[in-house]
Design a protein around this nucleic acid. Structure first.
Lengths: 311, 311
DNA sequence: CTGTGGGCACAACCGTTGGTTGTGGCCGAC
DNA sequence: GTCGGCCACAACCAACGGTTGTGCCCACAG
């Protein structure tokens, strides 16, 4: 199906005749006739009843019309999403199931009129480069890895601390615990495949390991979180970390247990980054929304690396 | 833009390489390459970065991807809307701003998973024919015009009485009234263009006129409700009837006044009609929903023609 | 460093699609 | 009955989109 054909259908439905629609689309009446005929052939139904002074929609045509309009709307939004200049607010998040995705969903609920696109970049270096090039408008990241400070033209504000929880299979030694302390984790194997050295998330876990003497294995390729969870569920000696907002529904299927970590609770610090000189119109709204929702969080009893920017 | 191209883009993005996407779509790798190149040319941005072992999305490509998926979803729904057998529930209403549209919106809110198409047919005769032919699954209509009883295979239930209100311009003699009695309306000109003799709505207004001695003019072609409202707003001697649920927002612009009618309140009786032997899977849900919402309405002090089916 | 294999792009070719012009038929209005 | 408006069909042609054949690039292994 061709969108130009759909556009022709809508034009003909609105005009009530092919002739006028043809003029509107700057083609001949015969072309419209052919397009509609082809569409009807594809769909297997008659969309118009041809009368002596025009064409009016059949019942099927009436049912199809709003879907056709919706199709054109979505197509327009799709094109707008990659239009240079005045495109939707484009934000980078670290993972689709992470806390910042929840923040963005909340923002979208609060401001459904603001067009939004979410992308996932590799690491903060890529994100900063994308912000500076204008490819994205903002990024949620843990910032300021030691030795690599943010450039002058990038501003940031800490918006969310995501508590880490332990994820174990039903046969794990700690599976029955209501909560565990960080000290208890020493000696247990924690598996987090896919950690790439040099990224800011690798730096976070490096610091976590150094601070509390944990054992985090990053061996093996990352086959996606489903494969990870399957393995953790089936391997009694293995556990992994996962952010708190991860939905429970798809954990239950695997028989997985989520256990809060305390004394202190490691939190992954998310900051919003943006360019000092390239303010997207919707960016101010996003910052205001985040400031409003982030207020009231308590940092006592939590741990984050010393190199992250303070709250 | 061609939907087959969009489908190709999504397949390539999912596969991470053109070759595999080509196999999935049963075309050659070169065809995929050409399609993607054409799409990139149309959009004016690069969607993939070609690497030695595949193609991965650029930031623009990542932003475009969810829109592309949405486009395919909408297209599928559009095709499904005219598919014979197992298509969405298709309901006929009398006018888009009428009470039944509100009912259908409420139903959609209550059951967002049920696919729904709304059409507007000419009169009950057309609607009954469409129900019997299977073109629609149900219809909201005032039924049983005297002398033309419903066929045996059509069932119906009265679901909503829509109170009529008087609509006047600011300079109308009754513009300041909080409410008017039917008796007060005698002698005032009420204009309702577009009433077609022989339809069930014409029969309703005929009965209303005969019962209370009103003056309803149906002269002149119907140029749409906007033109009607403009004229009513500017003509002190003219008023019209409109159903109660009509939204106020777009009445205020015209300086229009809506005045309840009492002693008695004329109500337009809407019934749901459906075929005894062609039950759409979702029809039972709709009937249950209507039964639940319609309960508790009070018929005292209202008037409807004697020929409509009882509540 | 070099050979190799996998993957994408370019070129040439060709059938089909989708546009045009020209024309005919139908139906409602006068 | 005639006229006018509108849509469908036919013939023709350009352009698009597919195929096969081939070359280049890059990652990886030897």
């Amino acid at each position: 199906m061709d969108l130009e054909t759909v556009r022709t259908f809508v034009a003909a439905a609105d005009a009530g005749q092919f002739q006028e629609a043809a003029a509107e689309l700057a083609v001949t009446q015969q072309a419209v006739s052919k397009r509609i005929a082809a569409l009807e052939r594809n769909l297997g139904v008659r969309l118009f009843t041809r009368t002596a002074r025009g064409a009016e929609l059949t019942i099927d045509g009436q049912a199809f019309l709003p879907h056709a309009r919706e199709l054109l709307r979505v197509a327009e939004r799709a094109v707008a999403s990659v239009r240079t200049g005045r495109r939707p607010l484009r934000v980078d998040v670290i993972a689709s199931r992470s806390a910042q995705s929840g923040l963005m969903r909340g923002f979208h609920r609060a401001h459904p009129d603001i067009e939004l696109d979410v992308v996932m970049l590799f690491d903060i270096e890529t994100a900063v480069a994308a912000i500076r090039s204008g490819a994205i408008d903002a990024s949620f990241r843990a910032v300021a890895v030691p030795g690599r400070p943010l450039p002058e033209d990038i501003e940031s504000v800490r918006v969310l601390d995501e508590p880490l929880q332990l994820l174990t299979g039903p046969a794990h030694a700690l599976a029955g615990a209501r909560s565990v302390t960080v000290a208890q984790l020493a000696g247990h194997r924690i598996w987090m495949p896919g950690i790439v050295p040099g990224t800011e998330w690798a730096a976070y876990y490096d610091d976590l390991v150094a601070e509390f003497g944990l054992t985090i294995e990053a061996t093996g390729p990352n086959f996606g979180s489903d494969a990870l969870l399957d393995t953790v569920a089936d391997t009694p000696a293995l556990a992994t970390f996962m952010g708190e907002p991860t939905r429970l529904v798809w954990l239950a299927d695997h028989g997985l247990r989520r256990i809060p970590v305390t004394d202190p609770t490691p939190v992954y610090p998310h900051s919003l980054l943006w360019h000092r000189d390239k303010p997207h119109p919707a960016l101010a709204t996003l910052r205001a929304h985040l400031a409003a929702t982030a207020a009231g969080h308590d940092a006592t009893g939590t741990w984050a690396p010393g190199w992250v920017i303070p709250r």
